[in-house]
Amino acid sequence: MSSPSEIDHLIDLMAKLPGLGPRSARRAVLHLIRKRALLLTPLADVMQEVAATARECLNCGNVGTTDICDICDSEKRATGELCVVEDVADLWAMERSGVFKGRYHVLGGTLSALDSIGPEDLRIPRLADRIDTEGITEVILALNATVDGQTTAHYIADQLQGRVRLTSLAQGVPIGGELDYLDDGTISAALRARKDI
């Protein structure tokens, strides 16, 4: 049986997870202990397994358990479309929608001179290589609408100009959104990107 100090250690570690604080970490640990057979032991086993096998895809930067992830490995995903995202979480969000059938390229962040993050830290050279080796015809820049995100988008666009079709995600009214609640910038972006019905 764990001594209280080991349980405290587990609570401390859990509290470092995104979305959890000390109180929710205590609740989660207590729950795990009460559901030892059902949750705690299987969780510990699978975490050990993931710790041993998880790695970044050498091609796109996605997280998987093989050197080349399933998406990069799949011939069906070789549509010529490449979606560039900042982070693996963005890739997973795109995948959840189930709409995009091409491949991804995870930059691993955005350009930030203040944080000493340059192009070579962001898999941008690798992105340029992939255009040729994978027969990419369109690069979709799915980067956040922040200063850093848009600076990175402009940088990549400059690097790839003339080599491939460059597109970015549309900006505007979210599905289920009400115009009354949108800020002026979003409304003007939506108006500029209007389309025929």
Partner: peptide, 26 residues
């Protein structure tokens, strides 16, 4: 934000025209 980023490039004597260009666009 964009100016502080560009100033850092200037102070670090970075010579990457595309990076400057992206920040100048912003």
């Amino acid at each position: 934000k964009a100016m502080r980023e560009r100033n850092r490039l200037l102070r670090d004597q970075v010579r990457d025209p595309a990076w400057y260009g992206a920040l100048e666009t912003q």
